[in-house]
Structure formats: C-alpha cells, structure tokens
C-alpha cells in the first residue's frame, strides 16, 4: 500500500479485465489498461476498506484445486439426486458448524465456496458465537459434513487469512 498505488491487486485485476474486454492487445489498449488500473483504485480510497492480507500462495492454489474438484463432483451428485438415480432414502436438512474462522474476507470466500458448490447452502452465520448454519441437500452420508467443511475449506482459509 503506497500512496501512488493504493491497491496493487485491484489495479492488476482491472488492467487484466480491460485487456480481456479489448483484445487483441495493442500498444493503445495496453496504455489505457495501465491508466484504468492505476487511476480507478483511487476511488476505493474514499471507501477505506480493510486491507486484504492473503498469505501462502501455495495454499491458495491447493484450495482452488480442491474447490474445483469438489464443485464438479457435487454437480454430478446433485444431478443424480434430481434425476432420482440414487437408491434408498435421501435425507435433507440443516447442519450446524462451529467455525474458528473470524476474518471477514475468509468468511466471504468460505460462503462463496459453500454456496457455489451445489448441494450446500450457507443459511446463517452468527458472528457472536461463530456458528454457521448450512442446508445440505443430501445428508445421507451422515455427520461428517462438519469435519468435511472444517478440514477441506476452513483450515486452508485459516492459513491464508491469518
């Protein structure tokens, strides 16, 4: 965070977005992308957001891989449920999970992961107690949902947003 470049990550994201929208890359679009990426983040100064401190790029990549695999798998699972391909009784219901994660950005990423994967919905988070209420479409697997969320997503997020 310097005064010349208040939000470097946002600047990079904006410049890349500009280049994607205005491909193919020419010197003119490159110059404009640089200008957009440099000037627009100054708007954010008026909003004074808390600084994002994401660490451990290796963990971020591993988490992204886990999420990608899980999203594809749960897509297929939910498709099976909808088409009625599963034998036996299906239970559906709410699961309550005690979270150790307190960082607002970490919780944001966790909510996007959980809701983005079909079959699980983030219903309510109580910031006073740190308890999270989930709705799960297919509860038949038993009570390992708590461990699944905590092991697969919360632990990497705790490392990233320390």
């Amino acid at each position: 965070m310097s005064r010349l470049l208040p939000h470097p990550l946002l600047s990079l994201a904006l410049a890349v977005m500009w280049l994607l929208l205005n491909a193919p890359v020419t010197p003119a679009t490159l110059l404009l992308a640089g200008l957009v990426g440099w000037l627009v983040p100054f708007v954010m100064l008026a909003l004074r957001p808390d600084a994002v401190r994401a660490r451990a790029p290796g963990v971020i990549l591993r988490l992204a891989g886990t999420v990608l695999v899980d999203v594809v798998r749960s897509n297929i699972d939910v498709a099976k449920v909808i088409l009625g391909l599963n034998r036996g009784e299906r239970r559906t219901g709410f699961v309550s999970i005690p979270l150790d994660l307190r960082d607002p950005y970490g919780l944001t990423v966790l909510s996007i992961i959980i809701t983005g994967a079909p079959g699980t919905l983030w219903v309510q988070y109580e910031s006073a107690t740190g308890r999270l209420l989930l709705h799960v479409l297919d509860l038949t697997d038993g009570d390992d949902w708590v461990r699944r969320i905590k092991d697969r997503y919360e632990r990497p997020l705790l490392e990233i947003f320390r």
Partner: peptide, 29 residues
C-alpha cells in the same frame, strides 16, 4: 444438459430449501 437438469430439479424437488440447490448446477458447471 446440466442447466436443464438444474431446471428439472426446480420442478421436482419438494421444499424451497431443497429447490434452492437446483439452479446452482446451471450457474457452476
């Protein structure tokens, strides 16, 4: 196909909290 299955789920599942999972199929994969 995945979007269509999601829309079918919107019809077939019984309660709102079940149905809310269905459109995610089209929105992700």
């Amino acid at each position: 196909g995945f979007s269509l299955i999601g829309a079918i789920g919107l019809i077939r599942l019984r309660t709102f909290y079940e149905r809310v999972h269905a459109p995610t199929l089209g929105a992700t994969l």
